[in-house]
Amino acid sequence: MSGATLYVYAIIPGGSPAPTITGIDGSPLHTVDADLVSAVVHTHHSSPYEGPDDDVKRWVLEHSDVIDQCWNQAPSVLPVSFNVIARGSEESGATATDQLRRWLQDTGEELMQRLNDLAGTSELRVEINLDTDHFSQNEPEVTALKADLEGKAPGVRRLLEKRLQKVQKQLTETAADRLYPEYRSRIAAQCQQLQDYATTQRPEGAVSVLTAACLVDSAHTSQLGAELTQIQEETPSAQIRFLGPWPPYSFVDIDAGLVTAQGQTGSV
């Protein structure tokens, strides 16, 4: 294969300022430019990044720092996933730069369209959990079970505690089913788009009601925050995580996948 590869961080509109920081492991950054858009890259001399988890975490953070800076300087940015590397072509002898530039040239309009769509937006993440113990504390079934626990032998107690936890969880799950549509529509009213995501961080002693990535007009972040404050005040047992603002990582979708297709055919 012909020579060096290019590690790609982000796509930015043509003419945007290039990032001033360094990339992963201090790699100097440059851009590969086509007519409409540019790619932020570093020249890469090895295989994709691979290693112990702690290294990967550091690399991912350094990768995201680059995207962040692009996002702060350029009107808009399309973040590229970790470990995306462009290489040259063995057949044609084209270098990685040639290949990447051609791709930017060929898909420039589509990329620019998406960049325009995403200009002025941020991704925010909202996670709402309900604390099962706190949430169900006034339920008759729970108070009865708790009263039952008093003065019981440890073995019996353990069984009852297990049952109590199960009841608490069930009550909270039912409430979560009821609250989800309400929270979702209230949050959606403050967003341009909303996407549920699965999280593996199972909340301890809590039930996850909603985990959503929100595409928000950057100027309206505080409105979403105010809605969350409202939810928090109404429901003291809600634990709310509110993350961001980030570049619109979850809303890039340039290859017209399912979601975009629906949006196009169905938006009104």
Partner: peptide, 14 residues
């Protein structure tokens, strides 16, 4: 960052 982002053309990008 591991799952999202631009879907690049697979022919050129590993």
């Amino acid at each position: 960052l591991l799952n999202k982002g631009v879907h690049l053309n697979l022919d050129l990008i590993i």
